[in-house]
Amino acid sequence: MPKILLVEDNEMNRDMLARRLEKRGYTVVIAVDGQSGVNLARSEKPDLILMDMSLPIIDGWEASRQLKADAAVATIPIIALTAHAMAEDREKALAAGCNEYETKPVDLASLLGKIEVLLRPPAQ
């Protein structure tokens, strides 16, 4: 099953999202800050990254930038989880290299749809 790296500092959100994803069969790897997120992405090579933007140490935008700048992990799709409904944050996320975004509170159906699209093999 696809492996998803969830980078989220808020414990409840992390726990809830991880459990719901796992319930749908995904393997979920957890990181609680931007820096460990980047590190885990490099070591675990997940199929997809769910990245919160407001993170300690380095924020989600910076982490995304670093990941997209690293050829080894640049191809891993990133879905930004923006708590801000502000459009700037969305655009900032896209500009930072994220492939998609989902506004918090997460609409699970919508998020699952996006995950599926991004995990679809490019041949299709």
Binding site: N10, M12, N13, R20, A83, K104, P105, L108
Partner: peptide, 10 residues
């Protein structure tokens, strides 16, 4: 919104 996120999610 952050706690709401959790409430709705749970």
């Amino acid at each position: 919104r952050t706690p709401m996120n959790a409430i709705i999610g749970y």
